[in-house]
C-alpha cells in the first residue's frame, strides 16, 4: 500500500488537478442524472463513487497514451482530458458531441486525447487495449495503453486471453479492474472464484496489485509504478481497484433491491473526494476556501457544458448512413 514517502513527492499542482478532476466528474455525473430524470437523456451508467480510480492512473498519462473504457466510462473520459462540453453534447445526441452524436454515453471516444472509446460490451475492450500496447511496441514508442473494466468483465475469457498475450509479448498495458462489488446486481463474492482478481496475475507471471480504489493517492502510487514498468518495456500489470458504485447499475434502478443500506453507508463514508479534500486541507496544500472555489469552478463548467449541449444542433439526417465506411467503393 501507499507510503508517505511517495505521497510526499507529489507536486501540489498534481494534487489539485486530481481533486479538481474528481469533482468535475462528480458534477458531470450528477448533471447526467438530472438530464436523465428530465427525459432529455435516455439513461447512463453512473460512475459516482469511482472517480479516484481513473484519476489516480491518468495523472501519469500523456495525451498520446491510450485509455479504453467500458459501458460506465464518463469518469475515464474526463480523467483522460476529454472535453466536458463535447461529452454532454454527445449524451444529448448532438452533432457537436465527441462522436457527432452517433455513439452516445457508452461509446465516447476522442483520439486527440487518447480516449480510444468506451465500449458497451462487457470485456470487449480488453483485447483491443492489448493491441494498442502491441502497436506502441511495434512502432517503438513508449506509449502506454490502459484498459478499465469491472469485476463483471473480469469473468470474461477475453481477460484471460489478453493477460496471457500481453505477458508473453511484454506489452505496455495496464489492466485495471474497477471492482465496484457488483456486476449489475450480481455480487463479487458470488461470481469471482478465489475471491480476488489481482491474484490471478500470478498465473501469468506479472504483477497483480490490490489497491484502495477510493483513495486517489493510493491509485496514484500504484498507477505510477505500473506506468513506469510499461514505459520501460517491463510488461503489463493487473490492478484491482476496490471501489464502490453509489447508485444503481443503469438509469434510475434502485440498488437497495440487492444490497443493504448499511453496506452503502460503509463505503460512502470512505468517499474519495471527501478524503482527498481532507488530505489537502490537513497538509496545507489548499484552504477550504480555495477548494470551494474549485468546486464552484467545476459546477460552472458543467452548467456551461449543459448549455452547450442543449443549444447544439442534432446531426443532419443524412448522417444516418455516413461513416459506415471510410471509403465506400
Amino acid at each position: 500500500m501507499a507510503t508517505t514517502t511517495v505521497r510526499g513527492t507529489i507536486a501540489k499542482q498534481k494534487l489539485i488537478w486530481m481533486y479538481e478532476t474528481m469533482v468535475l466528474i462528480r458534477r458531470f455525473e450528477e448533471q447526467a442524472r438530472r438530464e436523465q430524470d428530465s427525459g432529455r437523456l435516455r439513461g447512463t451508467h453512473s460512475a459516482i463513487g469511482q472517480e479516484a480510480v481513473p484519476v489516480g492512473i491518468c495523472a501519469h498519462l500523456r495525451d498520446d497514451d491510450f485509455v479504453l473504457g467500458n459501458h460506465r466510462s464518463h469518469h475515464h473520459c474526463i480523467a483522460k482530458g476529454v472535453d466536458v462540453n463535447e461529452m454532454m453534447a454527445e449524451l444529448l445526441g448532438k452533432v457537436t458531441g465527441t462522436n457527432r452524436g452517433k455513439g452516445g454515453t457508452m461509446h465516447i471516444a476522442d483520439m486527440n486525447k487518447g480516449m480510444l472509446g468506451a465500449n458497451g460490451v462487457v470485456g470487449s475492450n480488453i483485447p483491443v487495449a492489448t493491441g494498442v500496447g502491441l502497436s506502441a511496441r511495434v512502432r517503438k514508442t513508449d506509449q502506454v495503453s490502459v484498459v478499465f473494466f469491472g469485476d463483471g468483465a473480469a469473468q470474461q475469457g477475453s481477460l484471460h486471453e489478453s493477460l496471457n498475450l500481453a505477458a508473453i509479448w511484454k506489452l505496455p498495458v495496464l489492466f485495471v479492474c474497477e471492482n465496484n462489488r457488483y456486476a449489475e446486481s450480481t455480487p463479487f463474492e458470488y461470481s469471482v472464484a478465489g475471491g480476488s482478481v489481482a491474484n490471478r496475475a500470478a498465473g501469468y507471471g506479472i504483477p497483480g496489485v490490490t489497491v484502495d480504489g477510493q483513495s486517489v493517492l493510493d491509485m496514484y502510487e500504484v498507477g505510477g509504478e505500473a506506468v513506469r514498468r510499461a514505459r520501460a518495456g517491463e510488461g503489463p500489470t493487473l490492478i484491482e481497484a476496490q471501489t464502490y458504485r453509489y447508485f444503481g447499475h443503469y438509469g434510475a434502478d434502485n440498488p437497495l433491491g440487492y444490497r443493504t443500506k448499511e453496506e452503502q453507508e460503509f463505503y460512502m463514508a470512505k468517499d474519495c473526494i471527501a478524503r482527498m479534500r481532507k488530505h489537502l486541507v490537513e497538509n496545507k496544500f489548499a484552504t477550504e476556501a480555495e477548494l470551494s472555489g474549485i468546486d464552484k469552478k467545476c459546477t460552472d463548467a458543467i452548467v456551461a457544458a449543459t448549455k452547450f449541449g442543449v443549444d447544439s444542433p442534432f446531426p443532419k439526417l443524412d448522417e444516418l448512413t455516413t461513416d459506415v465506411y471510410i471509403k465506400y467503393p
Partner: peptide, 9 residues
C-alpha cells in the same frame, strides 16, 4: 468503431 465514434477513428 468507425461509425459509433462519428468517423473519428
Amino acid at each position: 468503431m468507425h461509425y459509433m465514434f462519428g468517423g473519428k477513428v
